[in-house]
Design a protein around this nucleic acid. Structure first.
Lengths: 204, 204, 204, 204
DNA sequence: CATGAATGAGACTTCATTCAT
DNA sequence: GATGAATGAAGTCTCATTCAT
């Protein structure tokens, strides 16, 4: 019985995270493709190969799933951005790194991108965004630091942070969306040019 | 009797379209605030002071209402842009006019802006956008002409049109959203500076 | 003004009965084709070229329209049957006349037939039928007389009236329906044969 | 615990199909009595003691329920007819068996009969009937064989099949309806006489 | 009288969530 | 823990009927 129990525990340890991940992965795909309201919980359950009730063991309800999934994706973006980021490099280089990473990562993970866009333009996202931007958050701290530094060193235009953000990342979001929807096609050269153009928009 | 008759005609002329407009106005407001799925038809009817069935006299179904409302808003943007637009002015000036108009109009009509954003990031909007961008449309023709001309005259960077669009309007959308959500505050000076920065992003 | 008024009155006199007939005719057609519940009042109004409200000037409500229409059709059948009916002819000849008339009339007025069938197999028809058959009615009096006479004269089988009715008219209804739905095709020879066979079913 | 387990299994086996059957049974009753349009899904659910949504687990929509119910009833009629049918007996005897069975079964299952009649005279039934009669179907094959054989052996009149069908079964349907609606009362003797009379209508 | 826009009760259906197994 | 059948609140839409014009 001891053996049996420990076995079950092991099974749980190994199996449970797998199940949660299955749900997350499938939910991401379906939400990104069909929208939040076009994706019943039962559809996620079926495609994830779990019972509908199981989803409620991992997420209190559908809204929580949607919100946690968004948090997951943000975290993934942060990891991508921080990978290879060197705070000792010049402002320009650091910006190029961040911007290029965001664009490349968005393009190579179209589901992530579409999910985030959808989320941010839904009632879910707005309140979240409000909480977030007014408070603190890691990724923005990184960016905020970079931009504050840039302004202080007179490398960047002397504009409010949100304005600089808009100038720098607005085009990025726009072109990523176009690419993902197939309205334009980016390659590495174009990406680099594009990012440099973004830099042009904020540098003094 | 003449007077009475003409009065009756006036009442008809003023009243019937009034009902359709009430619905449109209320629907815009509620959709922009609560999202498409957060706004039951019954809620629109109640707030518009009409019976639920009445909405279906003017719009075949909820989706049609959503789509027509979007078309309405696009038309309004177009009207705003075309007002004061002079095709004989230099490229730069024309661009500044368009960009400033879009930004000002978005800011002074936050419901319009939020509705459009929401629409374009929903299953409704994606297919529509696809049809639209690949085909022809008045507003884009205007912009397309302007940008093509700019590229030909070597006033603008030699980049694909969608890339120029992204560089020029991506920041605009971003800052408008921020302003509307209260994350940053724009004034006329800032708007002008901002628009000039956008120009900086695309001019050669 | 006198002239004007009398004109209007004339118009009314000529127009009003026409309007009622239009409604009746269109309602018959639509009900027969789409069923009672597949035919909104508004559809009848539109096809009849009248306002929806007008129908309610001639018929208290939809149910009344349906019932009156049925009564109309029954009357028409009676007229057809009585035309050429000679109570002095032998039983057999009289029956042949009636049966052949019913069959021919049904076939040449498929809408009438389908309406009646539909009516009799709906909640409308059942209660009506109950009222009717238990009471008296012209057409059945004619038939009842004929059949009673036939039984009394020992020309017909000695069976209860409803049984004789079923034997005599059951096949008629069945073949008429088949013909109208296109499952079998009758010509005058076949009709005569058929009616004779029906006679064979009840004659002693 | 063994006993308990087996009990639980039994409950499942007995209960789940029980729910579908409850729905079918109640739906039959209500449709037969009130008509298809006089019977909201909610009414069926309530009387069957299930939630409204449950009906949609078993039947895609109301129409499917209506159609499947009809198919069910047809199957039941076929089973009744085939029970005791002996293809080696003479034509006459076989016909008498079939006709008597149909009549008796109709009379003892008035709800089945009324449901079928209603169905066949509704938009549901007409298209179905068309598909059916023009194609092949078990019960009609049985009858078709019998009648073809009868015609070939010169036992039956030399008439098209639909005509023979009408002569043979038209009276049956008519008298069954009368009986069920209480307009005439059949007993076993009368049934036999009646069926023999039907035979008289088709035999040479 | 005629009209048809307006109404709202009520029908069908979906789906987030629960809970017995 | 896992399951998925069951639930019923809530949403979309239709249509018989009314009534101001």
């Amino acid at each position: 019985m001891n053996i049996h129990s420990s076995l079950m525990i092991e099974v749980k340890i190994m199996d449970t995270p797998g199940k949660r991940d299955d749900i997350i992965r499938v939910a991401l795909e379906l939400f990104a493709e069909n929208g939040f309201h076009g994706t019943p919980v039962a559809m996620i359950a079926k495609k994830a190969g779990v019972g509908a009730g199981t989803i409620y063991r991992y997420f209190e309800n559908k809204d929580v799933l949607i919100n946690e999934l968004f948090a997951d994706l943000e975290r993934k973006f942060m990891v991508a951005i921080e990978d290879g980021y060197n705070p000792n490099k010049p402002i320009r280089e650091r910006f190029i790194h961040i911007a290029a990473t965001i664009l490349k990562y968005s393009i190579s993970h179209p589901l992530y991108f579409r999910y985030i866009e959808q989320y941010q333009n839904s009632p879910y996202g707005v309140s979240f965004r409000r909480d977030k931007l007014l408070g603190k958050s890691d990724d923005h701290d990184l960016l905020r630091e970079l931009f504050n530094e840039g302004v202080a060193q007179q490398v960047l235009k002397d504009l409010p942070l949100p304005v600089l953000f808009a100038l720098a990342f607005g085009p990025l979001i726009a072109i990523a969306r176009d690419h993902i929807l197939g309205f334009s096609i980016l390659n590495d050269t174009l990406i680099l040019k594009f990012v440099e153009a973004c830099w042009g928009g904020i540098k003094r």
